[in-house]
Design a protein around this nucleic acid. Structure first.
Lengths: 139, 139
DNA sequence: AGTGAAACATCTGTTAG
DNA sequence: CTAACAGATGTTTCACT
């Protein structure tokens, strides 16, 4: 994890679709070297994925935390199911009784209800506890 | 913004580097159609960017949600007290029994314990429930 | 570790039908 | 939408620093 790796990470953090050839130019390494470094960074888990940042249609008028309780199935499974909703911004597996904590931003109460309804009907879903966010400070 | 767009968004959210050709296969559209749709989604701002998710070693090694239960005092009061900790990233007043949900990122377990200890000793604090984040997906 | 070059498959953008 | 083409890109391998 030297200076080159850090430069590569910074570039991919800004634009995950930057071509290897261009990265090579900017950090002054060959394509093969950059390819190999990226492969290492991915394999070692430093880069956990590449994701498009999708804006919530409308605006985030409603902010909610859902507590999910389900039986069987790994959390990865449910994450894949919830990924289809742009309103789902974050899924966190946490210690304690709750299986997963899901943060949702929706443009309206109606839309939120739709999303919540679909999540409740996921196979194996046992309970969905809703926590409307009434105040919020982000630092 | 029809069903196809939503499918495309879900795929790019999961893997920003998915080739257009493969997306086309999965949603049963032609490459040109998918290319055009992605172009529209980018230009209209629905897709605001593509980013590598990087786990920086040492930075935010520990992610935790705290459930705060206190008696008396408004949440604004406690927010002011917690603002002194850079590790406190978000404070949310939510509906339900829990008075406040606090998201914390700390560089080490030791440092987190210190912060948690201080929060527990805030005047009026009744209970602090810790939820270590063991898995996490941010979209 | 990195370079440069080559070879090959794949992706993309752009045409034309 | 399909088909086809040209150019760019990713990946791998190799000989050589």
């Amino acid at each position: 994890m030297d200076k080159f790796d850090q430069q590569i990470l910074a570039l991919l953090r800004a634009d995950a679709r930057l071509p290897v050839s261009q990265i090579a130019r900017e950090v002054n390494l060959s394509r093969s070297a950059v390819s190999e470094r990226i492969r290492q960074l991915e394999h070692s888990g430093v880069i956990s994925g590449y994701h498009a940042h999708v804006a919530v249609p409308g605006e985030a008028a409603i902010k909610v935390y859902l507590e999910l309780f389900y039986n069987g199935g790994r959390c990865e499974h449910y994450v894949e199911l919830m990924r289809v909703f742009p309103e789902v911004r974050r899924c966190s597996g946490i210690s304690g009784e709750t299986d997963m904590l899901v943060y949702i931003e929706a443009p309206s109460m109606l839309r939120f209800s739709e999303v919540r309804g679909e999540i409740e009907n996921f196979p194996g879903m046992q309970k969905v506890k809703t926590h409307m966010m009434v105040k919020d400070w982000v630092f």
